[in-house]
């Protein structure tokens, strides 16, 4: 299953995504949760906490600034830029944080 959750700010995308991801994982699926928001908060709703959520953002920024090498494959991206969330969900922040276009 591959789903994307979209909508207006504050409508509950992050909360819905986190519940979906954790529920799928509890049902036995291998789940990767991708935070594609430029203001990434999914870690909080998944239950990894503030600090770990911020650590993923800092790692993602290091990649954009060229201080960190890009992962050569999808699997290693999830491996290097992700973290383990409860119920076996793997969380990665994949949004490009720096982008001067509005919105």
């Amino acid at each position: 299953m591959r789903v994307a959750v979209v909508g207006k700010g504050g409508s509950g995308k992050t909360t819905t995504s986190a519940i979906l991801a954790r529920s799928l994982a509890r049902g036995g699926a291998r789940v990767v949760a991708l935070d594609c928001d430029t203001n990434p908060n999914l870690g909080i709703s998944l239950g990894v906490g503030d600090e770990e959520t911020e650590r993923l953002v800092v790692m993602r920024e290091a990649l954009d600034e060229g201080e960190s090498e890009h992962a050569p494959s999808w699997d290693s991206l999830i491996d290097r830029f992700g973290t383990d969330a409860p119920d076996g969900v793997r969380l990665a922040v994949v949004s490009r944080i720096e982008d001067p276009e509005p919105g």
């Binding site: 700010g9 504050g10 928001d37 430029t38 203001n39 944080i97 982008d99 001067p100 509005p102 919105g103």
Partner: peptide, 12 residues
């Protein structure tokens, strides 16, 4: 401004 941090940090 739009929700989030991006636009604010680009001087909008």
């Amino acid at each position: 401004l739009p929700g989030g941090t991006r636009q604010a940090f680009f001087g909008w």
